[in-house]
């Protein structure tokens, strides 16, 4: 009995041989050097007149005025709003529908559910650039473009997928939803499988309709998962620019220029480092505010 006092000790005591700091050092250094210092530096650069071409930088508030006062910013922010809200809603709604169908199929032992999951997830592993290039070929307005030549086969008129400003945004959103849905699907699929089966059995006793079961059991049970998913997908979508640059390049005109792409163009095409830093910080602030806004809706006390 007295030979095993170790086991009853709380975890803390076993660690008497040094704190967590040596363990945290590599990650700590990485985050300091590649995230914290650059973020502070971006903040500093925003208050200068620095350009990418190495001119000596002086303190200046001009970049703020030039960027925030620019007439392009209004268009860019409106595009970003439309793009993010529509893409996130589309990805989550479609992801939820697929997850519900797959979980139902698995519960009733229907064959083919793994294949469904695999096909949807396959789109997710495709590089964003390849995704943009792929959809550019699908939406090609040449007579042999995939969608338009299919429309012609069934006797419908062609659509100006990429040259019409309104349709171009729809096209970019479609390509984004196509690629991103898998992420929402897999997270919601995992959450659906943790819902207690007896809740549905009780509902069956009460003769609840499928819609009632979805509304009064599934959705409330999924609340946390949906909100966490919304935060992650929204931040990812806000930061997306590879699909857009490859599919439309932000055009026609500025019709699909979102904030991430606008930031990139300002720095690496316009060589305006200070202006780009202002926009990058704006992007960071929008991400943070939106994430905090959604997180506020999370149920309290579920500190997992």
């Amino acid at each position: 009995m007295t030979a095993r006092p170790e086991v009853t000790h709380p975890p803390r005591s076993r660690l008497g041989r040094g704190g967590p700091f040596p363990w945290l050092l590599p990650v700590g250094l990485t985050i300091a050097l590649f995230y914290l210092i650059p973020i502070l530096d971006a903040l500093r650069l925003a208050f200068t007149d620095a350009s990418l071409l190495g001119r000596e930088a002086r303190f200046s508030l001009d970049a703020f005025g030039a960027m925030l006062g620019s007439p392009a910013l209004g268009t860019v922010l409106r595009n970003t709003g439309v793009y993010v809200v529509a893409s996130v809603t589309g990805q989550m709604a479609l992801g939820l529908v697929i997850a519900l169908l797959v979980v139902r199929g698995e519960r009733h032992r229907l064959p083919g559910m793994v294949a469904v999951r695999t096909i949807v997830l396959a789109a997710w592993v495709i590089p964003g650039i390849a995704n943009g290039v792929l959809w550019q070929m699908l939406f090609s307005e040449a007579p042999f473009g995939a969608v338009n030549s299919t429309l012609r086969l069934i006797g419908l008129p062609p659509v100006a997928w990429l040259s019409d400003p309104g349709m171009a945004m729809v096209s970019v959103i479609l390509a984004t939803v196509w690629q991103g849905t898998a992420y929402s699907m897999i997270l919601l699929y995992a959450a659906l499988r943790t819902i207690d089966e007896t809740l549905y059995e009780a509902a069956a006793v009460d003769a609840a309709t499928p819609l009632e079961r979805f509304w009064f059991i599934t959705l409330p049970e999924l609340r946390s998962a949906l909100l966490v998913n919304a935060i992650l997908v929204m931040v990812m979508t806000l930061n997306t620019f590879d699909v857009v640059i490859a599919l439309t390049g932000g055009g026609p005109g500025r019709a699909t220029e979102v904030l991430a792409l606008h930031t990139y163009t300002t720095v690496f095409r316009g060589f305006d480092l200070a202006g780009g830093s202002v926009l990058a910080i704006l992007l960071l602030m929008i991400s943070m505010l939106a994430a905090i806004g959604i997180a506020a809706a999370l149920p309290r006390g579920e500190g997992r």
Binding site: Y35, P38, A42, L238, N239, T263, L273, A280, L283, S287
Partner: peptide, 24 residues
């Protein structure tokens, strides 16, 4: 707090940090 901090860092766009990192 540190773990949440790492989660927050993960949400920082590459564009924000890449501008200074390009200079380094």
């Amino acid at each position: 707090a540190l773990m949440m901090g790492i989660l927050a860092v993960q949400m920082v766009s590459g564009l924000v940090v890449l501008i200074p990192l390009y200079r380094y």
